Simulated assay, not measured.
Amino acid sequence: MSTYENRFPADREANRSYLLDAVASVADALAAGRDESEQERRLSPMSVEALRSSGLFMLKTPREVGGAEAHPVVQMDVIEAVVMIDPAAAWCMFITAAVSGATLAQLPDASVEEVLADGFPFMAGALRPGGMARRADGGYRVSGRWAWGSGVEHSDWVMVPVFCDGPPLIRALVPTSEVILHDNWHTLGMRGTGSGDYELDDVFVPDRFATDLLAAEQMRGGTLHRLGLPAYVVNEHGSFAYALGRLALQTMRDAAIEKKRGYLGGTSIADRQVFQRAIGQGTIRMNACAAGMAEVLERMFDSAAAGPPDPALVTEAQAVAVWCTDEATEVVSGLFRYAGGSAVMLANHMQRILRDIYTVQSHLMVSDVGYESFGRVVLGMDPGGGLP
């Protein structure tokens, strides 16, 4: 395989600074595209181009093929920085980063060369297996339909986890031109992510673009790519949730002095003790979430230095991600009470944040089952396996 130029520093802190500078470099473009994304129910072209040019899609890509391969805690900081600009852009960013990183860590060299021939692509994909792949000469014929295809309309490639009559599960990589897209993303929140369904109808996937989902060899990448699921993605959902909470806190702080309640002029909500308590307590809760998520990720990542991570730590990390989501949902909901009548308008930032947090809390990765699994660990029982 040819050598890929790598612009990302190997040192962890230098890598973090580089990635955060990349976020800052496209902040204006992402902010400018935010409302269009919301209205069109997919990322605006301006936002897509900004994410492409920034290199942020390479957040999890192995260093051997030019990626950042950032530590999970560094990823948290990057995700938060983008959430503070546009949550929809942040969601699509970490989805394509996870899909492309996992895919490029396992594909054969020749397949990686083909995928990266025209530059780094925008990849979309699903977490939950579905459909059916049947063995054919030189590959598989795949049919099925998958939901939550965040960013799929802008993608170049789509990864599908699919049941198979050979290996039990395979990961199939398909050009988006061969995928049927369904315009059914009419949702409460996260509207700008374009997370509609997509379908494959008897599409041929050659062997070079299919890997065994359960037993594929790690071709490249370090500790990050030994984590497996759900450990590989759990940081994304926890950090996204508390970042939404912090965005709500910032939005309400910015509005607090001007915001008055009452029919005859009223008083600033910043002068009300009940609001002061809500802001102070909410800030502490989101800080605790960030610290708790980072602490368990450090331990989990260290446990994977020489092999798969400790299953008990993976279970704990997933439970913490659920907790971050629950805490953020409560904080955002509590703050919304002080946003006043203008917050019922669709263009209001607090209303959008409220809709977004209620949408992401329904995701598979932050199911209450995460608490149950960790509870079994605490009780000295087997945590059970894999995703909820």
Rank of each mutant, 00 (worst) to 15 (best):
D326F: 04
A270H: 09
M132T: 08
R253M: 11
H154S: 15
S44K: 06
A172D: 04
W148E: 11
D165G: 09
E5V: 13
V65Y: 01
V82G: 03
K259Y: 08
S195F: 14
T176F: 01
Y198W: 08
G380M: 04
D207P: 06
E372G: 00
A317I: 03
V160L: 06
M286Q: 13
N6H: 04
M300F: 03
S17K: 13
T223M: 01
R63I: 11
L297G: 04
A243T: 07
E327C: 12
F94Y: 15
G55V: 07
R52D: 09
H363M: 14
E295A: 15
E114W: 08
L379G: 11
A22Y: 04
A126L: 00
A32F: 10
E178I: 00
L173P: 00
R253W: 11
A68R: 00
Q75N: 13
Y338S: 10
F240Q: 11
R7E: 09
P167T: 13
S177F: 05
R277I: 15
A304T: 10
S367I: 06
L107G: 01
P311V: 01
D271E: 15
D77T: 07
L173D: 03
L364N: 11
G341L: 15
C289K: 01
A347F: 10
L335Y: 02
L213Y: 04
E13K: 14
Q281R: 11
D302A: 15
S333N: 12
G55Q: 09
H154Y: 11
A88K: 02
S53G: 09
F8P: 04
D28Q: 13
Y242G: 07
V23K: 02
R52A: 12
F122M: 12
S37C: 00
G341T: 12
P206H: 03
T325P: 02
A339G: 00
S303A: 11
V160N: 07
R355T: 10
H237T: 09
Y242R: 08
G166I: 07
A304G: 06
E49M: 08
V322P: 05
V322T: 13
F209L: 02
G384D: 08
N15F: 03
V296W: 02
L227A: 01
D202P: 03
E40I: 08
N15Q: 11
E49A: 12
A304F: 02
I257M: 14
F122Y: 15
G66D: 07
E40W: 12
P383A: 06
A90M: 07
N348M: 07
T267Q: 13
G222A: 12
L387N: 02
E372T: 11
